[in-house]
């Protein structure tokens, strides 16, 4: 990926002018970023290396590499239910993200392409959710979910996650739509397409790039969501990974190396997803400019 476009001639010219100062600043810049990279990565690497030890070895030398590799820590962590938690996370994330994207698409379409009474009000109504702390809604939400009889089900995580993700995805998609040319839509309308037809056959295909980005960002948010899962889920069979990892650590108490193995297993899906889809991630960030 090349986000950076450089003009080689300028660069060459610049190099010549202050070559020595350049050498030094380059040295310090690299040094700084190498240190920062170590700070960013080493905690996980430390957990990873220790996850192969026995608890006693962890107590004795947590710096060193394991002498023999205790893969059984991973087997135990897996057997204890990490797999189940990850599966639940996949279910909740995929469904919540898709519902959210569908609703956001429609809302963004209306807000970006129609003139109607109350448009600004509704825009603020939806975007206002960006600023609200979910904690404020926690206790009433809890009672609403109970009344709807969906407490302690997947839906108890999916619906609040959709509601609190919707403002951002709507904002993201709407911004993108505002930048799209109207030619295709106008052509489709002349051909007699209904609003739904325009939406489905013109807008959705044009929005694919931003949809991918929005999905990834939203997936990351839902995947990592903690408070709703903590409050609205009791059954171990329904717990998502962030919560499951916590009960896992609680239940295993002092078996730290197994807990560490669980941490690593839990961290891998998102790391892999990110490394595979950096481009969509960064485009989404660039378009949204907002953090979760």
């Amino acid at each position: 990926m090349s986000l950076v476009s450089t003009s080689e001639s300028v660069r060459a010219d610049y190099f010549q002018r202050s070559a020595r100062a350049r050498q030094w600043s380059r040295f310090f810049a690299y040094l700084l970023f190498i240190i920062l990279t170590i700070v960013a990565l080493y905690p996980l690497i430390w957990v990873a290396t220790n996850s192969f030890k026995t608890d006693l070895q962890l107590f004795e030398h947590s710096w060193s590499l394991p002498k023999e590799w205790h893969w059984e820590n991973y087997a135990r962590a897996w057997k204890f239910g990490i797999a189940k938690y990850i599966l639940n996370s996949v279910i909740v994330t995929v469904i919540a993200v898709l519902i959210n994207i569908a609703i956001s698409m429609m809302a963004a379409f209306a807000l970006a392409r129609y003139q109607f009474r109350g448009r600004n009000l509704l825009l603020y109504f939806i975007l206002g959710g960006l600023m609200l702390a979910p904690e404020v809604s926690l206790i009433p939400l809890f009672r609403i979910l109970t009344t709807l009889k969906i407490y302690d089900t997947y839906l108890a995580m999916i619906l609040p996650n959709v509601a609190f993700g919707l403002p951002f995805t709507t904002f993201l998609i709407r911004s993108y739509m505002l930048g799209l040319p109207r030619d295709y839509e106008e052509a489709a309308v002349i051909d007699g397409a209904s609003p739904l037809g325009v939406f489905w056959h013109v807008i959705v295909p044009l929005c694919r790039p931003i949809l991918a980005s929005a999905m990834l960002l939203d997936a990351m948010r839902v995947w990592n969501e903690f408070m709703f899962a903590l409050t609205f889920i009791v059954s171990d069979n329904l717990k998502t990974m962030p919560l499951g990892l916590m009960s896992f650590a609680g239940a295993l108490r002092e078996q730290w190396t197994v807990v560490m193995a669980g941490i690593i297993i839990s961290a891998i899906p998102m790391i892999v997803l990110y490394l595979l889809t950096q481009k969509q991630f960064i485009r989404g960030l660039a378009a949204g400019g907002i953090k979760g």
Binding site: R113, G129, I144, A163
Partner: peptide, 25 residues
Amino acid sequence: LTPYLFLLPAILVMATFVYLPIIEN
């Protein structure tokens, strides 16, 4: 009514799970 219909699901979800709880709170 078209734009309102497109917005309806979003409004419903936001109203039920974001704004109603704030008032109830």
